[in-house]
Amino acid sequence: MAASKCVVITDDEQGYDLDLFCIPKHYSNDLERVYIPHGLIMDRTERLARDIMKGMGNHHIVALCVLKGGYKFFADLLDYIKALNRNSDQSIPMTVDFIRLKSYCNDQSTGEIKVIGGDNLSTLTGKNVLIVEDIIDTGKTMQTLLSMLQDYKPNMVKVVSLLVKRTPRSVGYRPDFVGFEVPDKFVVGYALDYNEYFRDLNHICVISEKGREKYKA
């Protein structure tokens, strides 16, 4: 499959002043800039829903949410797919499942991937699976998950990730559907966390040094 088109955010993109948006007061000193505003995330997610409908055909899809960071993107993406099911000629039945992976401590990927849950992956045998992820950093986590899934012999596996990070640590993995390609910065918000904080932030933002120190594990 050809590489997915996406919105590319360049290395010199400065983002937006925090004062231009509604930011929760408890995070006002913990962030540098708003990087991707919530409205832009939603518009891009709507388009991804359409691309997924087109790319996965008229098959029953099992949407597999990678927790915890993927839950907001997952919910919004499914809402857009459901709207397409209601309002267009093409309609895809969907069921949902969840898996939790852990590979971060503070702002660094540990390289070790813990799978929490996922005991019932045998239900994916013979199914068309859409893995919904918040961010692909090095790509190691997703490669591990994909190789795990192959043991259960799904019919088709596609991956959609809201963000893909441009990083020298990348193993070269690229998802089938991508929302935004972002520089090698640690971003939070829209369910992406730093030690469990910032999930309750609508926009995707760059964390400040003060924020890193404050919420360090």
Rank of each mutant, 00 (worst) to 15 (best):
Q90M: 15
R100K: 15
A75D: 13
N58T: 14
P175Q: 11
S28D: 13
P168S: 07
E213N: 15
Y152W: 12
T138S: 15
A49F: 06
Y152H: 15
L67I: 12
D119K: 06
M56P: 05
L146A: 13
E196P: 01
P154G: 10
K140Y: 13
S161V: 05
K54F: 04
N195M: 07
A191V: 09
D17Q: 15
D193N: 11
L18Q: 06
P93V: 08
V188E: 02
Q108D: 11
K153Q: 15
Y35I: 12
R212A: 05
P37K: 04
D89C: 05
V96G: 01
T141E: 12
G15I: 05
I81Y: 00
G172D: 12
D11S: 11
V164S: 01
I23H: 10
G55C: 06
E112N: 10
G70C: 06
L146W: 08
E13N: 13
S88L: 07
D184C: 05
G57W: 09
R44F: 11
T95K: 10
G117V: 13
T10Q: 13
K54Q: 12
K54E: 13
L31P: 00
R174D: 03
A75E: 08
N29C: 08
N87V: 04
T138N: 07
A63Q: 01
D107C: 13
D137H: 07
F186D: 02
M156Y: 01
R50F: 09
L201C: 11
Y35G: 00
T167D: 05
S161D: 06
D151W: 01
L121T: 05
Q143P: 00
D119C: 08
N155L: 07
S88Q: 14
D97T: 08
Y35M: 14
V164E: 03
Y16K: 06
K158W: 08
L77H: 02
V34L: 08
L124R: 00
H26T: 06
K102I: 07
V164R: 01
Q150H: 06
A2W: 05
Y152N: 13
Y35N: 02
M53F: 11
F180D: 01
S103N: 15
A2R: 14
H60E: 12
K68C: 05
T125I: 02
C105R: 04
K165C: 09
G57K: 10
Q90P: 00
K185S: 04
M94Y: 06
I92C: 14
R33S: 09
V182R: 00
H59L: 06
C22N: 11
V34K: 00
L84V: 09
E13G: 00
Y16I: 10
D17M: 04
K68P: 02
F198V: 07
E46G: 13
L31I: 15
E209F: 04
R47M: 13
R199Y: 09
H203P: 03
R166Y: 03
F198L: 06
G189P: 01
I81C: 04
H60F: 11
E32G: 03
P168R: 10
I9W: 03
M94T: 15
D97P: 05
V96Q: 08
L31G: 01
I92P: 01
N29A: 12
L78D: 08
